[in-house]
Write a protein that binds this DNA or RNA. Sequence first.
DNA 1: GTCTATATAATGATAGAC
DNA 2: GTCTATCATTATATAGAC
Lengths: 224, 224
Amino acid sequence: MQYMRIVGRLPDRHGDELTARTRLRDAALECFAVDGFGVSVRVIAERAHVSPGLIRHHFGSKDALRGECDEHALSTLRRLKESALSAPAGTFLAQLAQVRDYSAYVLYILRSVRDGGPAGRAFLEHMIADAETYTDSAVDAGIVRPSRDSRARVRYLVMEGIGGLIVALGQHPKITMDNIGEVMTQIVAEVALPRLELFTEGLLTDRRMLDEYLLYIGDPPATA
Amino acid sequence: MQYMRIVGRLPDRHGDELTARTRLRDAALECFAVDGFGVSVRVIAERAHVSPGLIRHHFGSKDALRGECDEHALSTLRRLKESALSAPAGTFLAQLAQVRDYSAYVLYILRSVRDGGPAGRAFLEHMIADAETYTDSAVDAGIVRPSRDSRARVRYLVMEGIGGLIVALGQHPKITMDNIGEVMTQIVAEVALPRLELFTEGLLTDRRMLDEYLLYIGDPPATA
DNA sequence: GTCTATATAATGATAGAC
DNA sequence: GTCTATCATTATATAGAC
């Protein structure tokens, strides 16, 4: 699970012309990703080597600019997911962060989820929907155990996985597009063993708590 | 695990006099918790029914005020943990959020962890250290399986648990001290079944991935 | 399309009256 | 101890020159 590789043509620009507008949007996305959404339009303009006034001319407002970044990041995430081997959301983002061209998207998406709001929700729902399909496949293939509530399980796994990534990243003093790759590698290495243990052997020694809970909510304990 | 109860004398004020200074600090803690650390000193002063200038008189700066909130929240967390049945960090915070007097502390702590930085790190390390002792006890009592790296496991479980809580809370449009209790109840209910399933039965149907990983890192596969 | 200059609002910090 | 008044800074938004 930890050593899957991203496949397909990753670093293509799929027809994005490098107009001044897209360059400005990309600069904004990077600033939002690294410095947060509180970053000023001056800093964004500076990174794009243009004047602050040009942002308004092209996008109208800072919020509208962020909206375009949201859209672009989501469509990029969608496109990459299609061309990549299915992997748990956290693992996929960790791998994607290694690719220099996409580290900004990873940071942007994680920051959006971290800060909540509509954009973060959209990213999360996309990752959950995606995880649903490949978890179903894994259950059909006999790799993953069936669940009594597979939708609740996939939501739980994605939200805790992404949440763990966010918390772990927050422990590092200054995340940039240059160090995000190695930081992610370190985090993935730290959770690899406990996660595989938990996923393979569980945590509790007996079924009592689960069976009691199933009784409590009115479901019969599983016979397995 | 989900239905443990907090015990002990919870809503006591343990010698905190309600001086103007502590009232101001408590107002600040609530504002930081609900509105974030970007909240203005004017809003804080308004909630405490004093003038903005008084904040500077008592604390010197907004940062110093936040520092006192950090200290107070951490000492409160410590005190409560001592008087409460041991429970996983996420579960404990979820229960604590039900108690009106402590909902602000829960929000404050979660927000601190969410935003990273020294305070969030301190809260996290405290929760991890605490979890370490009661996980060890649970292993000794034969309730929880031993781990090949128990410290890594407890870090993993706490960080994902708290992270999942943060992400789940972020999905709700507006968290206040009034609705945090029921929102937390809902979140705990949603994760209860998948978490108990995972903790009891694991996720994967066979040991291959774990054994391969143990081989990869040079440890012999467990004989169990 | 791109720039400079500025309007307007909000912030944290500060000084001094009472 | 508590207040009012204000400063300096910074933010976004805007207008208009080129």
